[in-house]
Design a protein around this nucleic acid. Structure first.
Lengths: 164, 164
DNA sequence: CCAAATTGCTTGAAGCTTAAAGAAATTCCG
DNA sequence: CGGAATTTCTTTAAGCTTCAAGCAATTTGG
């Protein structure tokens, strides 16, 4: 890409319409599904999607995670996580403990209540997702997984190239 | 799905892990790309992604659109669009005019300034997207388009089934 | 024609999100 | 050791987003 634009005779406007259409379609799919999941979470459990996502991360780490880990995994800003955690501690779903060896670090865990509620939600959530993707064959799914992995790698390469 | 769960002998917990993993991967891709685009828009043009998206919709409708149309196309709430439009009118990018035949309706258009700025941004934006998807072959793109179309249809079917 | 339902938009409260700046603790390295 | 850089987390301001309630205009169906 960078080589191209330097090698090329000035700048013939190329056709990038297909990539753009692909991106818009990808975005539409995600927005659609996200909205559906958000709605069902609110309706069934009166919980927001960000809270569910945060609890999902913690459920995978029984010994807890730091705020930084959470922020990296969830791909959101640090300050965002600070606020989310605060509200979830307030509601009794989370537990925070300062590290013994590094007083900057906080370990966050699900409380017993938090874990129990999350597990209940997660079970239903999984069936929603299965239904939402229900018209795709196993082969479709495999193929999508492969192509999205490639997409992710491509996007990461592009992002990295910009921020050296 | 509905038939299944009624026909089936109570509820054997099925394996829906692959669908869930697919959803998470889809979400990761979108979040990654969205973040990258957001960053570049801010850096290059000091504009937010929602404003860019809104202007993109309007650019396709030279005669203007109503707030409801915008909200449907962008898949966000009505109130959200009200605020976005307000700020963009304020900054001179948008123009609002009440319909002659229905005094509830407002037609929103890009101003000359708005259109000029958007076109400049859109041209660069398209090259970013092309680069972000740059590692995908034409065949990959065609295949992804097809599978995402199927995904979208499946998600819409699922959403519709829930809200009759 | 008119009451009821619908449509288009706005408002308000709560929560989410980012970017940027800053505070506190730790690590690096000369 | 000790100052500089880095890391972890919080705070702040601005903006985005949803949901629910509400207002005004229009359409619908008796």
């Amino acid at each position: 890409m960078m080589l191209d634009s330097e090698t090329k005779a000035v700048e013939l406007p190329e056709d990038h319409g297909t990539e753009l259409r692909l991106w818009l379609r990808l975005l539409t799919c995600t927005t659609l599904i996200e909205g559906e999941v958000r709605s069902r979470l609110r309706e069934r459990f009166d919980v927001t999607l960000p809270r569910f996502d945060l609890m999902a991360q913690l459920d995978k780490a029984p010994d807890g995670m730091t705020l930084s880990d959470l922020s990296k995994r969830m791909m959101v800003s640090n300050g965002n996580v600070t606020g989310l955690v605060e509200r979830l501690v307030e509601s009794g779903h989370l537990d925070r403990r300062t590290s013994d060896t590094d007083r900057r670090v906080q370990f966050i865990r699900l409380t017993k209540l938090g874990r129990a509620e999350f597990r209940k939600m997660a079970a239903e959530h999984e069936t929603w997702i299965a239904d939402i993707f229900g018209d795709l064959s196993h082969k479709d799914i495999r193929e999508l997984m492969r192509l999205l992995a490639k997409t992710k790698a491509s996007a990461q390469r592009s992002a990295k190239a910009r921020t050296p």
